[in-house]
Protein backbone atom coordinates (compact mmCIF):
# COMPACT_ATOMS: atom_id res chain seq x y z
CA UNK A 1 0.00 0.00 0.00
CA UNK A 2 2.77 2.41 0.81
CA UNK A 3 4.41 2.22 -2.59
CA UNK A 4 5.40 5.75 -1.88
CA UNK A 5 7.50 7.24 -4.64
CA UNK A 6 9.85 10.15 -4.69
CA UNK A 7 10.76 9.88 -8.30
CA UNK A 8 9.09 6.74 -9.46
CA UNK A 9 8.07 7.06 -13.06
CA UNK A 10 5.88 4.00 -13.32
CA UNK A 11 4.07 3.68 -10.03
CA UNK A 12 2.56 6.56 -8.14
CA UNK A 13 2.03 7.32 -4.51
CA UNK A 14 -1.62 6.68 -5.02
CA UNK A 15 -3.82 8.94 -2.99
CA UNK A 16 -6.98 9.17 -5.02
CA UNK A 17 -6.64 5.48 -5.51
CA UNK A 18 -9.78 3.69 -6.56
CA UNK A 19 -8.44 1.22 -3.97
CA UNK A 20 -11.50 0.09 -2.08
CA UNK A 21 -13.98 1.05 -4.80
CA UNK A 22 -12.56 -0.66 -7.87
CA UNK A 23 -15.03 0.75 -10.36
CA UNK A 24 -14.50 2.26 -13.76
CA UNK A 25 -16.46 5.35 -12.90
CA UNK A 26 -14.09 6.42 -10.15
CA UNK A 27 -11.08 5.91 -12.35
CA UNK A 28 -12.73 7.81 -15.13
CA UNK A 29 -13.47 10.71 -12.83
CA UNK A 30 -9.91 10.76 -11.54
CA UNK A 31 -8.59 10.92 -15.10
CA UNK A 32 -10.92 13.75 -15.93
CA UNK A 33 -9.88 15.73 -12.86
CA UNK A 34 -6.22 15.12 -13.63
CA UNK A 35 -6.70 16.43 -17.15
CA UNK A 36 -8.33 19.57 -15.81
CA UNK A 37 -5.51 20.19 -13.34
CA UNK A 38 -2.78 19.44 -15.88
CA UNK A 39 -4.08 21.11 -19.00
CA UNK A 40 -3.16 24.80 -18.38
CA UNK A 41 0.49 23.94 -17.78
CA UNK A 42 0.56 21.29 -20.50
CA UNK A 43 -0.86 23.53 -23.20
CA UNK A 44 1.95 26.00 -22.54
CA UNK A 45 4.61 23.30 -22.29
CA UNK A 46 3.50 21.86 -25.62
CA UNK A 47 3.44 25.28 -27.32
CA UNK A 48 6.73 26.56 -25.94
CA UNK A 49 8.82 23.42 -25.49
CA UNK A 50 7.55 20.26 -27.14
CA UNK A 51 6.28 21.58 -30.48
CA UNK A 52 9.47 23.56 -31.18
CA UNK A 53 11.67 20.61 -30.23
CA UNK A 54 9.77 18.42 -32.67
CA UNK A 55 10.34 21.08 -35.32
CA UNK A 56 14.06 21.08 -34.46
CA UNK A 57 14.07 17.30 -34.80
CA UNK A 58 12.73 17.57 -38.36
CA UNK A 59 15.07 20.45 -39.18
CA UNK A 60 18.01 18.23 -38.29
CA UNK A 61 17.39 16.18 -41.45
CA UNK A 62 17.43 19.22 -43.75
CA UNK A 63 20.20 21.39 -45.14
CA UNK A 64 20.28 25.19 -45.03
CA UNK A 65 18.14 25.31 -48.21
CA UNK A 66 15.51 23.15 -46.46
CA UNK A 67 16.22 20.13 -48.67
CA UNK A 68 16.10 16.63 -47.17
CA UNK A 69 19.62 15.33 -46.55
CA UNK A 70 18.86 12.41 -44.27
CA UNK A 71 21.54 11.80 -41.66
CA UNK A 72 24.12 14.07 -43.29
CA UNK A 73 24.17 16.57 -40.39
CA UNK A 74 24.60 13.75 -37.90
CA UNK A 75 27.39 12.22 -39.96
CA UNK A 76 29.17 15.57 -40.04
CA UNK A 77 28.97 15.86 -36.25
CA UNK A 78 29.95 12.32 -35.39
CA UNK A 79 32.98 12.51 -37.69
CA UNK A 80 34.08 15.72 -36.03
CA UNK A 81 36.77 15.50 -33.36
CA UNK A 82 35.65 18.86 -32.08
CA UNK A 83 32.08 17.66 -31.44
CA UNK A 84 33.22 14.46 -29.76
CA UNK A 85 35.59 16.51 -27.64
CA UNK A 86 32.77 18.84 -26.64
CA UNK A 87 30.73 15.85 -25.45
CA UNK A 88 33.70 14.69 -23.41
CA UNK A 89 34.20 18.19 -21.96
CA UNK A 90 30.49 18.46 -21.09
CA UNK A 91 30.53 15.11 -19.28
CA UNK A 92 33.70 15.93 -17.35
CA UNK A 93 32.30 19.33 -16.40
CA UNK A 94 29.19 17.67 -15.00
CA UNK A 95 31.01 14.91 -13.18
CA UNK A 96 32.90 17.65 -11.34
CA UNK A 97 30.40 20.44 -10.85
CA UNK A 98 27.29 18.55 -9.73
CA UNK A 99 28.76 16.83 -6.66
CA UNK A 100 30.63 20.02 -5.72
CA UNK A 101 27.50 22.16 -5.92
CA UNK A 102 25.24 19.68 -4.15
CA UNK A 103 27.64 19.02 -1.27
CA UNK A 104 28.23 22.76 -0.84
CA UNK A 105 24.51 23.51 -1.04
CA UNK A 106 23.78 20.80 1.53
CA UNK A 107 26.49 22.13 3.83
CA UNK A 108 25.06 25.61 3.54
CA UNK A 109 21.52 24.36 4.16
CA UNK A 110 22.59 22.43 7.28
CA UNK A 111 24.35 25.48 8.71
CA UNK A 112 21.25 27.58 8.07
CA UNK A 113 18.82 25.07 9.54
CA UNK A 114 20.86 23.63 12.41
CA UNK A 115 21.25 26.46 14.77
CA UNK A 116 22.53 29.52 12.93
CA UNK A 117 20.85 32.68 14.18
CA UNK A 118 18.81 34.66 11.61
CA UNK A 119 18.47 31.75 9.16
CA UNK A 120 16.25 33.72 6.77
CA UNK A 121 18.83 36.46 6.44
CA UNK A 122 21.67 34.07 5.51
CA UNK A 123 19.42 32.32 3.01
CA UNK A 124 18.45 35.61 1.39
CA UNK A 125 22.02 36.91 1.19
CA UNK A 126 23.31 33.71 -0.38
CA UNK A 127 20.51 33.82 -2.92
CA UNK A 128 21.72 37.18 -4.25
CA UNK A 129 24.37 35.93 -6.71
CA UNK A 130 21.72 34.14 -8.76
CA UNK A 131 19.69 37.31 -9.41
CA UNK A 132 22.66 39.23 -10.86
CA UNK A 133 22.47 39.04 -14.67
CA UNK A 134 24.77 36.20 -15.76
CA UNK A 135 26.57 38.49 -18.19
CA UNK A 136 27.58 40.73 -15.28
CA UNK A 137 28.57 37.85 -12.98
CA UNK A 138 30.75 36.51 -15.76
CA UNK A 139 32.28 39.92 -16.31
CA UNK A 140 33.06 40.37 -12.60
CA UNK A 141 34.69 36.95 -12.35
CA UNK A 142 36.54 37.50 -15.63
CA UNK A 143 38.17 40.58 -14.11
CA UNK A 144 38.80 38.78 -10.81
CA UNK A 145 40.45 35.82 -12.60
CA UNK A 146 42.85 37.95 -14.67
CA UNK A 147 46.22 36.25 -14.33
CA UNK A 148 48.47 39.33 -14.51
CA UNK A 149 46.53 41.97 -12.61
CA UNK A 150 43.48 40.20 -11.21
CA UNK A 151 42.08 40.43 -7.70
CA UNK A 152 42.23 36.70 -6.92
CA UNK A 153 45.91 36.47 -7.75
CA UNK A 154 46.50 39.65 -5.76
CA UNK A 155 44.92 37.87 -2.75
CA UNK A 156 47.03 34.76 -3.36
CA UNK A 157 50.20 36.85 -3.46
CA UNK A 158 49.20 38.72 -0.31
CA UNK A 159 48.85 35.47 1.64
CA UNK A 160 52.03 34.04 0.16
CA UNK A 161 50.54 31.54 -2.29
CA UNK A 162 51.64 31.11 -5.91
CA UNK A 163 49.71 32.94 -8.65
CA UNK A 164 47.43 30.85 -10.89
CA UNK A 165 46.58 31.08 -14.60
CA UNK A 166 42.80 30.59 -14.12
CA UNK A 167 40.81 31.10 -17.33
CA UNK A 168 43.93 31.41 -19.46
CA UNK A 169 45.18 27.89 -18.78
CA UNK A 170 43.78 24.78 -20.41
CA UNK A 171 44.24 22.97 -17.09
CA UNK A 172 42.47 25.51 -14.90
CA UNK A 173 39.82 27.10 -17.13
CA UNK A 174 37.16 24.49 -16.38
CA UNK A 175 37.75 24.73 -12.63
CA UNK A 176 37.47 28.52 -12.93
CA UNK A 177 34.10 28.18 -14.68
CA UNK A 178 33.02 25.73 -11.96
CA UNK A 179 33.94 28.28 -9.26
CA UNK A 180 31.92 30.96 -11.05
CA UNK A 181 28.90 28.72 -11.63
CA UNK A 182 28.99 27.47 -8.03
CA UNK A 183 29.12 31.01 -6.71
CA UNK A 184 25.94 31.62 -8.69
CA UNK A 185 24.21 28.32 -7.90
CA UNK A 186 25.04 27.08 -4.40
CA UNK A 187 22.83 29.52 -2.49
CA UNK A 188 20.03 28.84 -4.94
CA UNK A 189 20.11 25.05 -4.57
CA UNK A 190 20.47 25.33 -0.81
CA UNK A 191 17.06 27.03 -0.77
CA UNK A 192 15.36 23.78 -1.79
CA UNK A 193 17.42 21.74 0.66
CA UNK A 194 16.51 24.12 3.50
CA UNK A 195 12.86 23.60 2.61
CA UNK A 196 13.48 19.84 2.53
CA UNK A 197 15.25 19.78 5.87
CA UNK A 198 12.26 21.48 7.40
CA UNK A 199 10.05 18.64 6.27
CA UNK A 200 11.89 16.25 8.55
CA UNK A 201 9.73 15.67 11.65
CA UNK A 202 10.46 17.74 14.73
CA UNK A 203 11.76 14.99 17.02
CA UNK A 204 14.40 14.07 14.47
CA UNK A 205 15.29 17.74 14.13
CA UNK A 206 15.83 17.94 17.86
CA UNK A 207 18.21 15.01 17.78
CA UNK A 208 20.07 16.88 15.08
CA UNK A 209 21.04 19.69 17.37
CA UNK A 210 23.10 17.32 19.49
CA UNK A 211 26.83 17.59 19.00
CA UNK A 212 29.49 15.24 17.82
CA UNK A 213 29.36 11.85 16.18
CA UNK A 214 25.68 11.41 16.85
CA UNK A 215 24.96 14.47 14.69
CA UNK A 216 26.59 12.95 11.64
CA UNK A 217 25.01 9.55 12.21
CA UNK A 218 21.54 11.06 12.56
CA UNK A 219 22.19 13.11 9.45
CA UNK A 220 23.33 10.19 7.35
CA UNK A 221 20.96 7.48 8.53
CA UNK A 222 17.85 9.43 9.42
CA UNK A 223 17.62 12.92 8.04
CA UNK A 224 19.04 12.52 4.55
CA UNK A 225 16.87 9.48 3.79
CA UNK A 226 13.87 11.46 5.05
CA UNK A 227 14.60 14.31 2.64
CA UNK A 228 15.32 12.14 -0.37
CA UNK A 229 12.62 13.82 -2.47
CA UNK A 230 14.04 17.35 -2.27
CA UNK A 231 17.53 15.86 -2.71
CA UNK A 232 16.33 14.01 -5.80
CA UNK A 233 14.93 17.26 -7.17
CA UNK A 234 18.18 19.13 -6.53
CA UNK A 235 20.30 16.35 -8.03
CA UNK A 236 18.24 16.07 -11.21
CA UNK A 237 17.58 19.79 -11.65
CA UNK A 238 21.18 20.79 -10.96
CA UNK A 239 22.42 18.20 -13.46
CA UNK A 240 19.96 19.40 -16.09
CA UNK A 241 20.96 23.04 -15.56
CA UNK A 242 24.68 22.31 -15.72
CA UNK A 243 24.39 20.07 -18.77
CA UNK A 244 22.85 23.03 -20.60
CA UNK A 245 24.96 25.84 -19.13
CA UNK A 246 26.94 28.00 -21.55
CA UNK A 247 26.71 31.73 -20.75
CA UNK A 248 30.00 32.06 -18.82
CA UNK A 249 31.82 30.11 -21.53
CA UNK A 250 30.32 32.31 -24.23
CA UNK A 251 31.39 35.47 -22.43
CA UNK A 252 34.75 34.45 -20.97
CA UNK A 253 36.50 31.61 -22.80
CA UNK A 254 34.61 30.94 -26.03
CA UNK A 255 35.38 27.28 -25.49
CA UNK A 256 39.13 27.73 -24.97
CA UNK A 257 41.92 27.57 -24.08
CA UNK A 258 42.51 24.73 -26.56
CA UNK A 259 38.85 23.62 -26.41
CA UNK A 260 39.11 22.84 -22.68
CA UNK A 261 35.76 24.53 -21.93
CA UNK A 262 34.02 23.80 -25.23
CA UNK A 263 30.66 22.69 -23.79
CA UNK A 264 28.19 21.20 -26.29
CA UNK A 265 25.57 23.83 -25.54
CA UNK A 266 28.07 26.58 -26.35
CA UNK A 267 28.83 24.89 -29.66
CA UNK A 268 25.10 24.73 -30.42
CA UNK A 269 24.73 28.41 -29.54
CA UNK A 270 27.61 29.29 -31.86
CA UNK A 271 26.32 27.21 -34.75
CA UNK A 272 22.82 28.65 -34.42
CA UNK A 273 23.44 32.28 -33.53
CA UNK A 274 26.90 33.04 -34.92
CA UNK A 275 27.25 30.79 -37.97
CA UNK A 276 23.50 30.69 -38.71
CA UNK A 277 23.90 26.96 -39.47
CA UNK A 278 20.51 25.97 -38.09
CA UNK A 279 20.39 22.40 -39.43
CA UNK A 280 23.71 21.57 -37.78
CA UNK A 281 22.61 23.21 -34.54
CA UNK A 282 19.38 21.19 -34.77
CA UNK A 283 21.21 17.87 -35.14
CA UNK A 284 23.52 18.83 -32.29
CA UNK A 285 20.52 19.69 -30.13
CA UNK A 286 18.95 16.30 -30.81
CA UNK A 287 22.19 14.51 -29.87
CA UNK A 288 22.62 16.61 -26.73
CA UNK A 289 19.03 15.95 -25.74
CA UNK A 290 19.62 12.20 -26.10
CA UNK A 291 22.70 12.41 -23.87
CA UNK A 292 20.89 14.54 -21.28
CA UNK A 293 17.86 12.24 -21.26
CA UNK A 294 20.11 9.21 -20.84
CA UNK A 295 21.93 10.78 -17.87
CA UNK A 296 18.81 12.02 -16.13
CA UNK A 297 17.03 8.73 -16.88
CA UNK A 298 19.92 6.90 -15.26
CA UNK A 299 19.64 9.15 -12.21
CA UNK A 300 15.94 8.34 -11.85
CA UNK A 301 16.65 4.65 -12.29
CA UNK A 302 19.38 4.62 -9.65
CA UNK A 303 17.31 6.65 -7.20
CA UNK A 304 14.45 4.17 -7.57
CA UNK A 305 16.76 1.18 -7.23
CA UNK A 306 18.30 2.57 -4.12
CA UNK A 307 14.96 3.16 -2.49
CA UNK A 308 13.55 -0.24 -3.23
CA UNK A 309 16.84 -1.78 -2.06
CA UNK A 310 16.72 -0.23 1.39
Amino acid sequence: MSADSSINLTRGGALLSPGSVEDKKGRHQATLSAILFLSPAFVLLILFRLAPVIQVFFDSFLNSSSEWVGLENYRFLLESDSFLNSIRVTLLFNVLINPIQIVMALGMALLIVDGAKKPGMWQTLNLLPVVVPLAISSLIWGVAFRPDDGIINAILIAVGLPEQRWLTSADQAMMSIIILASWVGVGYWSLFLVAGLHQVPKDVMEAATLDGARYWRTLWYVRLPLMRRPLAFVLVADTAVNLLLFAPVQILTRGGPVDSTNLVMFDIYRNAFVFADLPLAAAETVLLLIVVMAIVGLQFFMLNQRRSGS
Partner: peptide, 11 residues
Protein backbone atom coordinates in the same frame (compact mmCIF):
# COMPACT_ATOMS: atom_id res chain seq x y z
CA UNK B 1 10.93 16.01 -16.99
CA UNK B 2 11.75 16.09 -20.71
CA UNK B 3 10.48 19.67 -21.00
CA UNK B 4 13.14 20.95 -18.64
CA UNK B 5 15.88 18.98 -20.39
CA UNK B 6 15.23 20.86 -23.63
CA UNK B 7 17.73 23.71 -24.02
CA UNK B 8 15.51 26.73 -24.56
CA UNK B 9 18.14 28.68 -26.54
CA UNK B 10 18.35 25.81 -29.02
CA UNK B 11 14.65 26.02 -29.86
Amino acid sequence: VVTFLIPFEAI
